[in-house]
Simulated scan of single mutants.
Amino acid sequence: MKTIKRIHPAAYHPIADLITYNPLPSHNLRQIDPFIFLNHHGHQTYPKNNNGLPFGPHPHRGMETVTFILEGDIMHMDSGGHESVIEAGGIQWMTAGSGLIHAEVSSEKFKKEGGDLEILQLWVNLPAKHKMTKPKYIGLQKDEITSFKLDNGKINVQLIAGEWNGNQGSFETISPITLSTIHMSEGSSLTKEIPQEENIFFYIVKGAVQVQGETIPFRNLVEFNNDGESLTVKASEDAIIILGHAKPFNEPMVAQGPFVMNTQQEIMQAYQDYQAGKFGTWDH
Rank of each mutant, 00 (worst) to 15 (best):
M1Q: 14
K2C: 11
K2S: 04
K2Y: 08
K5E: 11
I7E: 02
H13T: 15
H13L: 15
I15T: 12
D17I: 08
L18W: 04
L24G: 12
N28S: 13
L29V: 14
I32S: 03
D33W: 12
F37W: 07
L38G: 02
H40V: 05
G42F: 11
Q44N: 13
P47G: 15
P47Y: 10
N51T: 15
G52T: 04
L53Y: 04
P54A: 07
F55Y: 14
G56L: 09
G56S: 11
H58C: 04
P59E: 04
P59F: 03
H60I: 01
G62R: 01
T65I: 06
V66W: 05
G72H: 13
I74F: 12
H76L: 07
G80M: 13
G80R: 04
I86W: 06
G89N: 15
G90T: 13
T95D: 03
A96K: 00
G99A: 01
L100T: 03
H102Y: 04
E104G: 10
G114A: 15
G114R: 14
G115V: 09
G115R: 12
I119G: 07
L126M: 08
K129E: 13
M132C: 00
P135L: 08
P135D: 09
K136S: 15
Y137P: 09
I138P: 04
I138G: 05
Q141M: 13
K142T: 11
D143E: 15
D143F: 13
E144N: 12
L150H: 03
K154T: 15
N156W: 02
N156F: 03
A161S: 14
G162T: 11
E163W: 06
N167D: 02
N167P: 05
G169E: 02
F171K: 14
S175L: 07
S175G: 00
S185Q: 15
G187F: 12
S188H: 05
T191P: 04
E197A: 14
E197C: 07
N199V: 08
F201N: 00
F202R: 03
F202H: 13
K206M: 10
V209P: 02
V211P: 05
V211W: 03
G213R: 08
G213A: 08
P217M: 01
N220K: 11
V222Q: 02
V222M: 07
F224N: 02
N225D: 10
A235H: 01
S236I: 05
S236M: 12
E237L: 03
K247N: 09
P248R: 07
N250M: 11
E251F: 08
M253T: 15
V254E: 12
M261T: 07
Q264K: 14
E266G: 00
Q269M: 13
K278N: 13
K278L: 07
F279T: 00
F279D: 01
W282F: 06
H284R: 11
